[in-house]
Nucleic acid binder design. Structure first.
Lengths: 185, 185
DNA sequence: ACCTGAACACCGTTCAAGT
DNA sequence: ACCTGAACACCGTTCAAGT
């Protein structure tokens, strides 16, 4: 049921996720979802939660790998960027939807857990002097916001029209190049 | 009519901008808008265009002021951030709505003109050695994306929950501090 | 415990007219 | 040239039942 909504979101965006279409895709009536979710938003939240947990798991695996801290950071950023590229509507739901962000409870917990994984990747870089020794929360926020801005602008088609703007991945590399020299050697 | 839609957007977000509400606010019937706009999206696009032109004008005035290039950049960034803070739904429409971004014609022209003003502010900083001498388009894209990411995350309430994340304005200052030292003296 | 079908209020859009 | 009112298809949500 959550899976059906997720697929519809990928295929046709937010507007395609009608309870009738979700019901039909899951082989039930158009208001069977109301027996499992409070309303449409709660159903979408379950999609967002699954994605938040998937991302958190991916970052956790990267953290446990034997790459250098800096490589782990790059891999983490690329993983989020790939998710945004391959699932733009689901990315939008998870990171841009105001109604989802306003939810308390498990959705908020999942979002914070995902962010915490991300923050640890940044912290490891700082410990290894691969990122500057500025306040950890500020640096994490700046990197995450820059990443999100690149994915968001690019995902909604606002990075091409300009005069030779570079893509998401090169921009991420540029950001890290600009941050790295500020770190003590 | 465009003004009525803009006000409704500010007051109740995208969902509040129904053709019936717009018509009523403008004192006409619920489908009078169809005589002036092709459909609902075209009406929203006219709101976005007005905002794009307003922002472009604001940046143009900042460019013509007697501040230093670096101060003009900071003022420009703060102006966009303020617009995002005071009109989150209109900001979302202008910079995050995929349907608006997909429009060709005058909307695209207005968006590109606004971005061009922004790019000139960055270029002036590079000329004055207040920003590093990297490729101009890449640097402009990175700064704009970072700014957008901060406004986007903060505007949808995703910057507080974390563990002591700093606000939009301090993050912008941090970004410029991190970029500035890379510039030759 | 889980599902269905009818019904309601609301919305974007279309169309035939009205001045 | 600009507007109105009725109508249509669609949607989220509710409710009374069904097994």
């Amino acid at each position: 049921l959550t899976q059906a909504a997720s697929r519809l979101l990928d295929l046709g965006g937010d507007a395609a996720v009608t309870l009738r279409a979700v019901g039909q895709a899951a082989g039930v009536s158009h208001n069977a979802p109301y027996k499992h979710f409070e309303n449409r938003l709660a159903l979408l939240a379950s999609v967002a939660m699954a994605d938040a947990e998937e991302l958190a798991g991916a970052v956790r695996r990267i953290r446990a790998s034997d790459m250098s801290p800096r490589e782990r950071l790059m891999e983490t950023l690329m993983t989020v960027a790939r998710f945004g590229r391959e699932h733009p509507s689901r990315y939008r739901l998870l990171f841009e939807d105001p109604a989802i962000a306003a939810l308390e409870g498990p959705m908020k917990q999942a979002a914070m857990a995902t962010f915490a994984e991300f923050a640890e990747v940044v912290r490891d870089c700082q410990t290894a002097n691969a990122l500057p020794a500025m306040p950890h929360a500020a640096l994490t926020g700046l990197i995450f916001a820059s990443l999100h801005g690149l994915i968001s602008l690019s995902g909604s088609g606002r990075m091409q029209p300009g005069k030779g703007l570079i893509g998401v991945n090169p921009s991420i590399e540029l950001l890290l190049d600009v941050l790295a020299p500020a770190a003590p050697r």
